[in-house]
């Protein structure tokens, strides 16, 4: 019987070695180890053995079962691995084919510029204010030290709706509105982005509608050097750390002293080129120390409080930053234009 078991094992292992499919392997499992299998039928002869032989043979039979089972399991793993390999080979795809496009939109470039500037000033402790686009003559002009008949009103030809109402020509009225709302309380730190309107014929450099961001800082002991430092931070953040700024005296009825801020030309690094009209500098914004009359009209004692204000044009900033040569592009909404700025 020992010989029978030994040859059974030998035969089974040889068969296992030969099979190539899981089905055949399963078949072998049944043939040798099943309830009606070869091993079982050999063991049926156990009854004829002596009590001394039985445990020896039993032990041997278990060992044979174990050996065959192991061989089958091992073969199974091999076949399964081969099958998987085959399947994976069959599932190979052309990874260079395009994926399903995901529709993603984006901000208008003016919004992107405005949001970048908002974020900068929020970091400096400012809040964002908004104001009406249809303004009263009082807030648009008079509260900003531009009484009726003032020659500087010529600087901004306006769309009047009635004698007293007009489309705001700048975001500066929000200065007056904010200070009036705070009624002499401190501090005032705000910026106001928004649409503004002027009677200009639309061409490459003029638009009857454009955007502005007004800024205002009022507190005790605010100095002109604070304005210079703030604008320097703005310029470096928006235009690059290597930009220099320069302030030039200018005139706005609502600030005194008044300044224009230039930044050094990026194209020529200040050497002079066609972009900066050979000056090395590009005009970016107007600013100044809040005029005492403006403070007083809004209820701030100009002997105690001082402040600075600035106004800039996101349209102009975007044009300079990205080399856009026609302001009308912002309002035509040509998809081929807008999409150019939909990148991080």
């Amino acid at each position: 019987m020992q010989d029978q078991l030994a040859s059974l094992q030998e035969e089974a292992l040889a068969k296992v070695e030969e099979v190539s499919s899981l089905d055949e392997l399963q078949q072998l499992n049944v043939t040798y180890l099943g309830r009606k299998g070869s091993l079982t039928s050999v063991l049926r002869g156990m009854g004829k053995l002596s009590p001394e032989e039985r445990p020896v043979i039993g032990q041997l039979a278990n060992k044979v079962r174990e050996t065959i089972t192991q061989a089958i399991e091992a073969k199974k793993a091999t076949i399964e691995a081969e099958l998987l390999e085959h399947q994976l080979a069959e599932e190979t795809i052309d990874v260079t084919l395009p994926g399903r496009p995901v529709q993603v939109g984006g901000s208008h470039i003016l919004t992107a510029v405005i949001e970048e500037i908002e974020d900068l000033f929020i970091g400096l402790g400012y809040e964002v204010r908004e104001g009406p686009e249809v303004e009263t003559d009082y807030y648009n002009f008079e509260a900003l030290n531009l009484p009726k008949g003032h020659p500087a009103r010529d600087m901004q030809d306006s769309f009047y709706l009635t004698n007293e109402l007009l489309l705001r020509t700048h975001t500066s009225p929000v200065q007056a509105r904010t200070m009036e709302e705070l009624k002499g309380r401190e501090p005032v730190r705000m910026i106001c982005p928004g649409k503004v309107y002027r009677r200009d014929s639309d061409d490459a450099t003029h638009s009857h509608q454009f955007t502005q961001i007004e800024g205002l800082y009022v507190d005790k002991n605010v100095r002109m050097s604070d304005l210079k430092g703030t604008l320097d931070q703005f310029a470096k953040k928006i235009f690059g750390e290597d930009r220099e700024i320069r302030l030039r005296p200018s005139f706005f009825p609502f600030t005194e002293p008044s300044v224009e801020m230039d930044i050094s030309c990026k194209v020529c690094s200040g050497k002079g080129c066609s972009v900066c009209k050979q000056t090395g500098w590009i005009e970016i914004l107007g600013a100044g120390m809040v005029h005492p009359k403006v403070l007083e009209m809004a209820g701030y004692d100009s002997k105690v409080y001082s402040g600075f204000a600035f106004g800039m044009g996101p349209d102009r900033i975007a044009m300079l930053k990205y080399g856009i040569d026609d302001i009308r592009q912002f309002y035509l909404n040509d998809i081929r234009f807008l999409q150019q700025f939909h990148h991080a």
Partner: peptide
């Protein structure tokens, strides 16, 4: 204030220092 401007412009805006307001700061926000 007009005289401040006269003095400053002859003194030179380039010669003004760069500072940030020294008042107590406060978080900004939307």
């Amino acid at each position: 204030e007009d005289m401040v401007e006269e003095v400053a412009r002859i003194y030179g805006y380039d010669n003004l220092p760069y500072t940030l307001p020294e008042n107590a700061s406060r978080p900004g926000g939307f």
